[in-house]
Nucleic acid binder design. Structure first.
Length: 897
DNA sequence: ACCTCCCGCCAAGAG
DNA sequence: CTCTTGGCGGGAGGT
């Protein structure tokens, strides 16, 4: 509270101008802000007002000539955005944290400027030094870029929301929250919609689907692109001068595939997608352009598309007369689209040098192999949980024989076959074969083999329903949610002592499993029955389920909690306990996806491998009492699955029953940043500490799988109290050594028993969260691509789910390279898919957002409800009133509210 | 000078 | 008619 007061003061004291610029990172970003500054007073007051309000948000009422009222509305309480408040509080609470945050800012890549900016601002404010800085900091054009905005946007939602969750996106809210005009949001949403990441639900409302269907969508687009013969067109254009070519194109197009189809095409995957009516304005929509643009990449052998070629093709298709202005316009649009795609870590900027010179181009860095989709996998994995399918894909899991048997759907062989089939099949996609797929396939194949063996071995084992999913192309998508296996008990780990683990951290491999285990931790493969009751906290034990389980997944993103968006806004409620908050914050944002170039850069800084705890948004309360339930098993798989994730998050927040696992990491280093500050928060939360893992080399019974036990992370760092460890809470990871190579592992501490229905979003947690079915709620393994340790790549794996995904799967070299190549600065943080994280590096949880969850969720989720909240209404009204100015968003409320 | 692409006008669409 | 969407392109920041 005090902090808040201070903040206000500071703000007030500042020169008015500064205020504008500053605000939250969010606000800062607004285009409006700048505009306002320059124009404010003189020019259109009306329009400006809203803006001003938002910007000024409370702090500088006086300043605002225009809209004093709002100030009133806003309570004094909210000098800043909630997020800002949180940050402030945090910093006030801990100088260390503050420092860390600062560091982060420094580390952050350019893209993160916003965040950095925000952070710095806040910090500055606190410090008082600020003014100058403000001025300096005023958001640059880049800070206001669509790509950055998109990252923030993505950060609010889980890449792989639980199927059960329905996240709705209120454009108004988002715009407000992000501090931009709605128009900008349309641009983002349109592109996302083209990939079916979102779908329009109603006016001003979109539903968030996440990346679950991305592979499928891409596959469809690829197919369409092939049908359209885009590859040929591109090749043709590239060879010849665009100008000359044009007309030819037209001819070809007609022959080949009708453009008209395009709109339809869009529909393919999701129902929501309203088919666009034919020649309406919509035909030219950004959505369609986006799909076509993506198709070009998917069809291209080089995976590189130059904007001029893309523009040409688009113009052709649109049958517009190819005049120069049209071309220019197309290119502008392509940049818009490219920015969003870059934020999704699907493409990255490159330059192609040709005779003519350097041409702007983009390279596809997203998933290349879409072959394995959920469908098949579904069968394998889930007779039980149909729903999981979606969530699953991209993940490989092992299913206990029993379950399978139970369902009667198949036996181990079948399962393995399916997997392999999946992997191998798909002749249809050239890409996969071509690119990295080879490596990928191999891996999968080996995994499948392993899987099969395991299954056989397991006969006795307990069952848990596992789903085995192949990692589809999606693997690239970083954040695939792990299906958590629900359940139960089979795998338990007792917490390991930190010390022991710490040793491991440094060099996992150095420690033979045996060694490590012998002392404190024992790894035993035991069926559930066997598993001993909870161990004393001090002694860590690892039980390994008889069958190996595992695997990899894309990122985990669990919770879709909309909350992320709330970040700024959501935060409002004072954080009850610092701990809780922290834990929450850590949450990466969903965004995992995100893309965030920044992420990687940051990531490494702290954590070695990190675990990512999903934070659980809403249930902070729960958190407190972790229920370590050893037995969560009872829960249905679905539940478990969800729970697992949630639980993990909770656990984290909760203090991780375990030892502080929670704090340590956030897994997502890369996660972007997202929106606001979250990153800061997270960081603060995070610990620099190393990840502690105990590496056990293929313990007997594991068939070559290596087990990583997470050491506790230094809870202290986070400030989380180290609670008694719940007996089972030790997270562990089992990796097939040979096959997988080093993966970053993220694990979530055990979850508190109950899984809240509301999933917590782990936005950025890059790492994948696994729930081992056997484990019970307690043990969840998260593997974050970022987290993955790859000896080879020094780069940090970005937390990004997206990035991660690939990593975990072992992208083809090509892919990895490309990622690596990604410019750090570029928004495409995604760049390091391949990168394996060094152990030392822990992915830094980038996303602070987690904190908000609870509040946020509500905030975001129910737009309708949200709106009601004062702010929303006001804003709307205002905006509308201002409607004359058509679009200005009024952000007065400052989203924060 | 060229690449990028922010910004917001203003019209099509939706309700 | 009001409000939502979003095409469009001027013009400015970045290199």
């Amino acid at each position: 509270m005090e902090v808040n007061c201070l903040t206000l003061k500071d703000l007030i004291s500042r020169p008015p101008r500064l205020d504008f610029a500053i605000e939250d990172g969010e606000n800062a970003q607004k285009e409006n802000i700048f505009v306002d500054r320059s124009r404010m007073a003189p020019k259109t007051p009306i329009k400006n007002e809203p803006i001003d309000l938002s910007k000024q948000k409370i702090f500088t009422p006086e300043r605002n000539p225009i809209t004093p009222v709002k100030l009133v509305d806003r309570q004094q309480a909210e000098p800043w955005t909630p997020t800002a408040n949180l940050k402030i509080l945090i910093s006030a609470a801990s100088p260390d944290i503050r420092d860390r945050e600062k560091k982060k800012g420094l580390f952050r890549p350019i893209e993160n400027k916003d965040d950095a900016f925000t952070d710095s601002l806040q910090l500055d404010v606190v410090d008082d030094s600020a003014v100058d800085e403000f001025e300096k900091q005023r958001p640059s054009r880049k800070q206001k870029s669509l790509g950055l905005l998109c990252q923030k946007f993505l950060a609010r939602y889980p890449s792989y929301p639980l199927s059960t969750e329905k996240t709705t996106i209120s454009l108004d809210e988002v715009a407000i929250s992000l501090g931009v005009e709605r128009r900008r949001i349309y641009d983002i949403v349109n592109v996302l919609e083209s990939l079916h990441l979102v779908s329009r639900v109603a006016k001003n409302q979109y539903g968030w689907h996440g990346r679950h269907s991305l592979p499928k969508t891409l596959r469809n687009l690829q197919r369409l692109g092939e049908e359209q013969k885009y590859e040929e067109q591109m090749a043709y254009l590239q060879q010849k001068e665009l100008d000359l070519i044009d007309y030819k194109f037209g001819e070809r197009r007609r022959d080949g595939c009708p453009d008209s189809q395009d709109p339809q095409l869009l529909d393919f995957s999701e129902p929501d997608y309203p088919s666009s009516s034919a020649n309406s304005r919509k035909d030219k929509s950004l959505r369609i352009m986006s799909q076509k643009f993506v198709m070009l990449f998917l069809v291209s052998k080089t995976k590189i598309v130059t904007l001029d070629v893309a523009a040409k093709i688009l113009i052709e298709e649109s049958q517009d007369t190819p005049d120069h202005s049209k071309f220019k316009t197309k290119v502008r649009r392509l940049y818009d689209i490219a920015n969003v795609l870059t934020s999704l870590a699907l493409i990255k900027k490159v330059h192609v040098t040709e005779d003519r010179g350097r041409k702007p181009a983009f390279k596809w860095i997203g998933p290349v192999d879409f072959s394995s989709t959920d469908d098949d996998l579904v069968d394998v994995s889930t007779p039980v949980l149909p729903e999981l399918k979606r969530e699953i894909y991209g993940h490989i899991q092992f299913c206990p024989k029993q379950k399978l048997a139970r369902h009667g759907s198949f036996n181990s062989e079948q399962a393995s076959e399916k997997i392999q089939r999946k992997v191998n099949s798909e002749p249809s996609s050239p890409f996969r074969q071509k690119q990295g797929s080879g490596g990928y396939s191999l891996e999968i194949g080996s995994l499948a083999a392993v899987y099969r063996q395991k299954i056989e071995d397991i006969s006795e084992a307990e069952a848990f329903a596992g789903q085995s999913a192949m990692p589809p192309s999606s693997s690239l998508d970083a954040a695939a949610p792990l299906p958590s296996p629900p359940v139960d008990s089979e795998y338990r780990v007792s917490p390991l002592s930190h010390q022991v683990l710490s040793a491991a951290q440094t060099d996992l491999q150095a420690l033979p499993a045996q060694n490590g285990l012998s002392g404190r931790g024992v790894v035993s493969l035991a069926p559930a029955e066997r598993r001993p009751p909870a161990l004393a906290a001090a002694q860590p034990l690892l039980y390994v389920p008889p069958a190996p389980l595992f695997m990899l997944c894309g990122g985990l993103r669990e919770a879709p909690s909309p909350g992320s968006g709330a970040e700024s806004a959501a935060e409002p409620p004072p954080v009850p306990s610092g701990q809780k908050r922290l834990s929450k914050e850590r949450e990466p944002q969903g965004e995992e996806e995100e893309p965030a170039p920044k992420r990687h850069s940051r990531d490494h800084e702290d954590g070695p491998l990190s675990l990512v705890m999903p934070k659980k948004p809403s249930d902070s309360t729960d958190i407190a009492s972790p229920k370590t339930s050893e037995n969560r098993g009872s829960a249905p798989h679905e539940d478990t699955h969800m729970n697992g994730q949630l639980s993990a998050a909770k656990a984290v927040s909760g203090k991780a029953t375990t030892n502080g696992f929670v704090s340590s990491e956030w897994g997502n280093p890369s996660r972007n940043t997202e929106t606001e500050n979250p990153s800061k928060e997270n960081e603060s939360t995070k610990e620099p500490s190393l990840p502690q893992y105990l590496y056990v080399q293929s313990p007997a019974g594991l068939n070559g799988f290596n087990v990583l036990l997470s050491g506790s992370q230094s809870p202290h760092a986070v400030g989380l109290p180290v609670g008694p460890l719940p007996p089972l809470s030790v997270p562990c990871m089992v990796l097939p050594s040979p096959t997988l190579g080093a993966f970053p592992v993220l694990y979530s501490p055990t979850m508190p028993g109950p899984v809240s229905s509301a999933p917590s979003p782990l936005p950025n947690a890059g790492p994948v969260n696994f729930g081992l079915p056997g484990l019970g709620s307690t043990a969840h393994l998260l593997i974050g691509p970022a987290a993955l340790v790859n000896p080879k790549s020094s780069t940090l794996a970005s937390a990004d789910p997206q990035l991660q995904g690939p990593c975990s799967l072992h992208l083809s070299p090509v892919m990895s390279r490309s990622h690596g190549s990604v410019q750090p600065g570029s928004p495409a943080y995604g760049g390091h898919p391949a990168s394996t994280v060094k152990l030392q590096q822990s992915p830094v949880p980038v996303t602070p957002k987690s904190i908000r969850c609870t509040h946020q969720e509500t905030f975001f989720k129910t737009p309708g409800s949200l709106r009601d909240p004062v702010l929303g209404r006001k804003e709307r009204n205002q905006s509308r009133s201002s409607s004359s100015a058509q679009r200005r968003l009024e952000i007065p409320s400052g989203g924060a509210d």
